[in-house]
């Protein structure tokens, strides 16, 4: 199997227009700040923007909250920054109008609901850990064991600057492992209750044919059917009959996980 460049390019170029506004009760200035507009790359992560957001709003909040870690919220749900932006939008933004309106908070950090992410480095470490988990599932960490610091830095830097080719120069090692994958890194999210499903899943079914996403969803979700649910991957209907490993190579997010959103029709 080789990679499908068109699919990968399409995934890397997907973006969501967003409008960040400061929570009105946190504004201590007489004048309301202008909103902060950005095109959010679906494949990327919110903390990569935090410095800019913080700088934009810092002068409108009290001096003591200025340096506290910010957190973001959509529709009263705090956004879990360790998930890729595209997943967050597919999971929470079903009824959202564009631009996606996100509220910025400096105060009352919801410790029970989201992790603190005080710096970009914390977010990058989390991202690399997710890659390590994916590699463990595929090869029992054979690839990450031999990956240099330079290659890791190349991946995080290329994700930040959205240079697909630089990213894939390293990512290819993680995807084409020279032996069959043991398991496919896959997380399924049910938008009804924001539940996350993760189980061990291989690349073949009992008949030794390539396992498809449809077979997995039939197995994981009670009474799964096309009439009841729609299945999203990167904001578009997921190809349910495609072999899971093909999806893993070509349609995973940057951390090498497939994040599939299932929502009722």
């Amino acid at each position: 199997m080789s990679e499908d460049r068109d699919v990968i390019e399409a995934i890397w170029s997907g973006s969501i227009p967003a409008c960040f506004k400061l929570a009105s009760h946190e504004c201590t200035s007489l004048q309301n700040p202008e909103p902060f507009f950005a095109m959010l790359p679906r494949i990327s992560y919110l903390p990569l923007l935090w410095e800019k957001i913080q700088r934009h709003f810092a002068h409108f909040v009290t001096e003591e909250s200025r340096s506290s870690p910010i957190w973001l919220e959509y529709n009263l749900v705090p956004l879990r920054w360790q998930y890729p932006i595209g997943l967050l939008f597919d999971l929470l933004g079903e009824k959202a109008t564009l631009p996606w309106n996100i509220t910025v908070h400096f105060n009352d950090f919801p410790v029970k609901e989201v992790l603190a992410c005080p710096s970009r480095q914390v977010a990058e470490a989390q991202f690399l850990n997710s890659i390590k988990e994916a590699d463990f599932l595929k090869t029992r960490k054979k690839v990450m064991n031999t990956m240099t610091q330079g290659e890791r830095r190349q991946m995080t830097a290329a994700l930040h600057s959205l240079r697909t080719e630089n990213f894939w120069a390293v990512n290819r090692k993680l995807m084409f492992t020279g032996e069959p994958w043991k398991h496919v890194p896959l997380r399924v999210f049910l938008s009804e209750n924001c539940r996350q499903l993760q189980k061990l899943v291989g690349i073949s079914n009992a008949e030794n044919e390539p396992l498809t996403l449809r077979e997995v969803l039939n197995d994981w979700i009670q009474e799964f059917s096309d009439e009841r649910y729609e299945v999203l991957l990167h904001g578009v209907p997921a190809p349910l009959e495609a072999p899971l490993q093909w999806l893993g190579v070509n349609m995973s997010y940057a951390d090498n996980f497939l994040y599939v959103v299932v929502r009722p029709k």
Partner: peptide, 9 residues
């Protein structure tokens, strides 16, 4: 599995 640190949440 001596391989990765899971997210704290």
């Amino acid at each position: 599995n001596q391989a990765f640190a899971p997210a704290l949440d």
